[in-house]
């Protein structure tokens, strides 16, 4: 009897501990969002989003940083998406289990684990210096693109694997070649998942700072970029620079709050869009 009671108490305490850890995580997120929203919303208005910075970064807007982040992410996706889809097509449609595919998987897994700052160095040495692209949108996009390639490959692979094998067999049995089957049957049915993966990739890239530190980003430039060889301001780098450079910490901090809120809303918004699109395709899916 006593023993049973003791066991019950232990169980309750254990459950309490587990529940608490889940609760703490929930609270952490709450605190993060609370501070960013409450303090960030104060500085955000239309002008903040659409104007150039003024008075040496102490007032004005963050428009060039938003634009720069847009260019960098688009560039990265435009680069990584086709490559990732084609890699995924090999993995799901052609590959035979064995040494080759193991080697490829090791490559993908380890590329995904490379620290972002190392990508930054790689981009600096290869694109900025060796290819002479300079500190530019191009160098930054390529660096970011390589970084998210594993994400894109995995997402595309998953999407392709979800296409029922019956579709492939039916197409082949009608005398379609393998390529026709992939192009006309498999890809169109996987496109929803691939798009979702790409958008999630955009969300990741938009918040990255380390890879663009030396490849693309600049704290302050008066002109908007006019080619892929321009250096750009970027939201995440802007936040970092506002907090560590310049001579008006107080004013800069307020802007940093606003920029952080914009970045968070952007990243979470992008992820939400991805989820909405995924649900749309799931509902539309007819198998």
């Amino acid at each position: 009897m006593d023993n049973r009671k003791w066991r019950e108490i232990k169980q309750q305490m254990g459950f309490l501990a587990l529940r608490t850890s889940a609760l703490i995580i929930f609270i952490i997120l709450g605190i993060l969002l609370y501070f960013l929203f409450v303090r960030g919303i104060k500085v955000i208005n239309w002008g903040f989003l659409t104007k150039m910075p003024e008075n040496g970064m102490t007032s004005g807007g963050i428009f060039p940083a938003i634009l720069g982040t847009f260019y960098l992410t688009m560039g990265a996706i435009l680069f990584a998406l086709p490559l990732g889809i084609m890699a995924a097509i090999y993995m799901t449609e052609y590959a035979v289990q064995g040494k080759v595919i193991r080697l490829i998987r090791i490559g993908i897994s380890n590329l995904a684990s490379v620290p972002s700052i190392v990508f930054g160095l790689f981009g600096l040495a290869l694109f900025v210096n060796y290819c002479k692209f300079g500190v530019s949108i191009l160098s930054g996009s390529l660096t970011l693109g390589i970084m998210i390639l594993p994400v894109i490959i995995r997402a595309s692979e998953e999407a392709l694997l979800l296409v029922p094998n019956g579709f492939r067999e039916a197409s082949l049995a009608l005398g379609a070649t393998k390529w026709q089957t992939i192009y006309k049957i498999v890809l169109p049915n996987a496109i929803g998942g691939i798009i979702t993966g790409a958008i999630l990739g955009v969300g990741r890239v938009a918040g990255e700072t380390a890879p663009i530190l030396f490849t693309a980003a600049t704290f302050y430039t008066m002109k908007l970029p006019n080619s892929v060889f321009s250096e750009v301001m970027a939201l995440p780098y802007h936040i970092y620079a506002l907090m560590t450079e310049g001579s008006h910490p107080k004013e800069q901090k307020a802007i940093a709050y606003g920029a952080s809120l914009v970045l968070i809303v952007l990243v979470l918004g992008i992820n939400m869009i991805a989820i909405v699109i995924r649900n749309y395709y799931r509902r539309k899916k007819k198998w």
């Binding site: 029922p164 019956g166 579709f167 067999e169 039916a170 197409s171 049995a173 009608l174 049957i185 049915n189 899916k285 007819k286 198998w287």
Partner: peptide
């Protein structure tokens, strides 16, 4: 031509 056990019309 072939017709399969589980009907597999394209979507």
């Amino acid at each position: 031509g072939m017709v399969f056990q589980k009907s597999n019309p394209f979507p």
